[in-house]
Design a protein around this nucleic acid. Structure first.
Lengths: 186, 186
DNA sequence: TCGTTTCGCTACTTCGAGTATCGAAACTGA
DNA sequence: TCAGTTTCGATACTCGAAGTAGCGAAACGA
C-alpha cells in the first residue's frame, strides 16, 4: 500500500551539503551576513531549493544544529560523571567552527518568533532534556535549569568574547554544575 | 574659557523619553519588530534625532540598558551576601518589561558586530565587572566567569521560554554561584 | 509517452537599517 | 534686532536580505 517512493522526481540528497555550507558560511561571515543566498551558493544549490525544505532561515539553522550536535554520547558512571561529560561535550560542540555563532544567532531570532522558538524547543532542546531526565533521574524543571546554566554560560562567553570558552573555565563550569546535583545514589 | 553652553540650538532633553519608548516598544513587539521608526514614533521624535544621538540601533539599545540597570546597589556584608544580592538584582532587572528582550537582542546583534560588541563590553559589562572585582576581591577572569554564568543563564531562560526566570530558580542560581566562591575572609 | 514532483533560474515584493537634504526653530553674541 | 550656529522634524532615498512567484527543464513511476 504505502508507496516506498512517492511520485515524481526524487529529492536530491543535498541536506548534508547544505548543512556543511551553512556552518562554513556562518563561521566565515557570521550569522547576520550568512544570508540564505550565500549559503545556497556555497552549497551549489538554488535558494528556492533551500526554502522548499526548510521554512525559514532559523529553521534551517536549527536543523543544521540538530545535525551538528547529534545524539548525546551515552556515558556510564555516576551521575556526576555523566553530568561532567555532558558539559564537556556541549562545550566541545559549541566550539566547533560556526556552531556557536549559529546557535547564538538562532537563539536570538527565536526570542521574538514564537514559531521558531517552538522549533528550537522541540527539535533541539527537548531530546536532550528527556535523555538527561532519564540518565540523571532529575525532574524536568531541574534539568531545564541545568541546561539554562550550561548552554547559557557557554553562549554568553561566545557572544561577549567571540571565542569559545577556554578549557579551564569549562572545567570550572562542569565542577560547579556537578556541585548542585543531590549527593546521589549511583 | 570652556563655554558652559555650546553654540546653537540646545539638544532637547528627550533621552529618557526615548529610552522609555524603546523598552515599551521592545516589550510590546519584540526586539526584531521594534524598529527605529516605531521607537521614534512612540517617543514623539523624528528618526533622524535618534540617529543623531546614537550611531545604531544596537548602540541605542545598549545605552537604554545602561540606563535601565543603573549602578549596582552597594551591599555590605560577606562576599556571599554581596554575590547573592547581585544575582537577585540582575534577575530583577532582566525581568523588567522589555529589558530581557532588549538585552538578548543586542547581545545577539553583537556576536558578529565587533563594533557593537566593543560598546556592549565597555559601556555595560566592564563597569559592573570592575565593581565586582573590587567588592569580591576576585581576579578578572573569575568575575568574568561569574558574569557569564549569571547573565547567560538568565538570558537563556528568557530566550527559551519568553518569560523571566521564576524566583525559586533565581534562588538556586544564587546559591550555586555563591557555592563556587572561595570560602572567604570577610 | 504521460503525469508528477523537484530542480535551477530569474524576477519580484516587502521591510528595516541607515543616510541625505532642507526649511524651521532655538539659542548666543553683537 | 540681527547674524551665526546647531538641532529639530519631515520626507525621500539607498541598500541589503528574507521570503515568494512563475517558469521551463530534468528525473522519476506507470
Amino acid at each position: 500500500m504505502a508507496p516506498d517512493r512517492p511520485l515524481g522526481r526524487p529529492r536530491s540528497s543535498v541536506d548534508a551539503t547544505v548543512f556543511a555550507a551553512t556552518l562554513r558560511t556562518v563561521h566565515e561571515l557570521g550569522y547576520t551576513h550568512a544570508t540564505v543566498d550565500r549559503i545556497a551558493a556555497g552549497a551549489g544549490v538554488a535558494k528556492t531549493t533551500i526554502y522548499r525544505r526548510w521554512p525559514s532561515k532559523g529553521a534551517l539553522m536549527t536543523a543544521c544544529l540538530v545535525d551538528a550536535f547529534g545524539p548525546l554520547p551515552v556515558e556510564s558512571g555516576s551521575r556526576a560523571e555523566i553530568m561532567s561529560s555532558a558539559v564537556r561535550w556541549a562545550a566541545a560542540k559549541i566550539s566547533e567552527p560556526g556552531v556557536g555563532a549559529a546557535f547564538a544567532g538562532v537563539f536570538t531570532d527565536a526570542i521574538n518568533d514564537p514559531g521558531l522558538r517552538e522549533i528550537l524547543l522541540t527539535q533541539l532542546q527537548d531530546p536532550y532534556r528527556l535523555v538527561l531526565q532519564d540518565l540523571l533521574g532529575e525532574p524536568e524543571n531541574r534539568v531545564l535549569f541545568l541546561i539554562d546554566v550550561v548552554i547559557g554560560t557557554l553562549l554568553h562567553r561566545m557572544g561577549m568574547t567571540g571565542e569559545p570558552m577556554a578549557e579551564a573555565d569549562v572545567d570550572a563550569l562542569a565542577e560547579m554544575v556537578v556541585g548542585v546535583l543531590p549527593a546521589a545514589s549511583s
